[in-house]
Nucleic acid binder design. Structure first.
Length: 420
RNA sequence: GGAGGGUUGGCCGAGCGGACGAAGGCAACGGUCUUGAAAACCGUCGGGCGCCUCGCGCGUCCCGUGGGUUCGAAUCCCACACCCUCCGCCA
């Protein structure tokens, strides 16, 4: 959620900034009018209540024989309060709903454009070359019985898979490897709940805008998280932190569940796009003035993770038209996938400024009882399935085995995978 | 799944229809005293929203959450959430 005051005090600049990401100016004008009506009704209710309160208190002080008439007068004041309140509640509800759907203000440096218009900031690692043809991850993993897609489909449907044998071991190794790097940078490892209440989804900005991407449980009203960003952001919901507490840095490991609605026919092969995957997610709570630096810091950790795996990739500054509702700016790492001859997203790192914090009511006490919103950021340390694809495809050898990068060897306990 | 008991400010804890935003204590902060510290004493000490003469101002709302009763609710009623204890089941 953005600051309501922006629409009152700085309408033009706000509308111009939001227009970059496709928010209609007329809609914002309506919202501003709604806000004005809301405030005048709040003031009217306050005033009516003050009258009624004064009348009630006077009854308490009055002698019993005078009370009858006073009670009657107070009753009328009560009715007026009730009328104004219902009017106010209606406007507040409309305002809240409309306002929650407004996305975050884009960062001034985020590039213009829509999906595909990202700006490549830099590349790292070296693209492997293959003389005798390339296998993709499905061929490599299935040949080694490390992946079973057919049985995943049998049991759960399309976009589900089994990781087995060395595939399963590879996950454990990748996770441990990523967690250790995150810890070295001060992130506390966390295994969060993956079923969350509506409130947490709303607070992180996935509701109301991304409802069609979420799985939900039928009888208990839970949502399955699409990323541990949700429970990590929720950690300090409704909390007033002390300045000394910041920065708070976490690394969550969890399965992630996504319906992938609207992606029919897209990436149907293998485990690039699945309904369930695992991920190590970085999350930071920082003071507002440090969020830009923290964003670069998280990106650097991501880069360290992939550099250590010897993976060639590029870093893309995501255009405003392709940002999630809560992000002001986002960097993706796209790894080179030899099996596709394409760069594909393997991480995503967002600065959500105060957008999530405002919804989650996570604040920090500064100076003289002044409470300000924190800034929150998230970034993928390692998305298991996608990292696995990049790793096996880039480090494959002609016989279908895969060279294990040195940094991963201690966690995997072997130098070569799929050697048969 | 069954039976009970809880939820009050940073923490502990009183209040059980009328000036209660809430006693008291602890913690924290400022001060007095002291060579310094401790102790003692004095003072300050929740948050949201709105208004404005922008003042360390005014109003209003908040005692788990949402409803209800009442002129008036932390206090009475209903529903829900969460926590705890015991029994059952279980990785």
């Amino acid at each position: 959620m953005i600051d309501v005051r922006l629409l009152r005090d700085d309408f033009d600049a706000t509308a111009t900034a939001l227009a970059r990401r496709g928010v209609d100016r007329a809609r914002l004008e309506e919202l501003r009018e709604l806000d004005e009506r809301r405030r005048s009704l709040v003031a009217a209710v306050d005033e009516a209540r003050a009258d009624q309160g004064a009348a009630s208190r006077a009854i308490g002080q009055a002698s019993p024989d005078r009370r009858g008439a006073m009670i009657q007068a107070a009753q009328e004041l009560k009715d007026r309060v009730a009328t104004l309140e219902s009017e106010r509640d209606e406007v507040v509800a409309a305002h809240t709903a409309a306002f929650a759907a407004v996305p975050n203000l884009p960062h001034a440096d985020a590039p213009d454009g829509v999906e595909g218009d990202g700006v490549v900031l830099r590349t790292f690692g070296e693209a492997p070359t293959f003389e005798d043809g390339v296998r993709d991850h499905v061929e490599l993993l299935e040949a080694a019985d490390a992946l079973d897609l057919a049985r995943g489909a049998k049991v759960s449907g399309s976009r589900f898979a089994y990781l087995k044998g060395e595939g399963a071991l590879l996950e454990f190794a990748l996770v441990r490897y990523a967690i250790e790097i995150a810890m070295a940078h001060g992130h506390v490892p966390v295994i969060p709940p993956v079923l969350v209440r509506e409130e947490a989804m709303y607070g992180t900005g996935f509701l109301p805008t991304d409802e069609q991407q979420l799985f939900a449980t039928r009888d208990d009203g839970f949502y399955l998280v699409g990323t541990s960003e949700v429970p990590l952001a929720g950690l300090h919901m409704d909390e007033l932190l002390e300045a000394d507490d910041l920065p708070l840095r976490y690394a969550g490991y969890s399965p992630c569940f996504r319906r992938e609605a609207g992606a029919h026919g897209k990436d149907t092969r293998g485990i690039l796009r699945v309904h369930q995957f695992e991920k190590v997610e970085l999350f930071s709570f920082v003071a507002a003035e440090h969020s830009a630096a923290e964003h670069e810091r998280l990106l650097a950790i991501e880069e360290e993770v992939f550099t250590g795996l010897g993976i060639h990739a590029r870093i893309v500054d995501i255009p405003v038209g392709d940002l999630g509702a809560s992000a002001a700016r986002k960097y993706d790492i796209e790894a080179w996938l030899p099996g596709q001859q394409a760069y594909r997203e393997v991480t995503s790192c967002s600065n959500t400024t105060d957008y999530q914090a405002r919804r989650l009511r996570t604040r920090v006490r500064v100076g003289d009882g002044d409470n300000v919103l924190v800034h929150t950021l998230n970034g993928t340390a390692l998305a298991v399935q996608r990292a696995m694809i990049a790793l096996v495809e880039q480090h494959q050898r002609p016989d279908g085995s895969v060279v294990v990068p040195e940094a991963l060897q201690p966690h995997l306990g072997r130098e070569v995978l799929f050697a048969g």
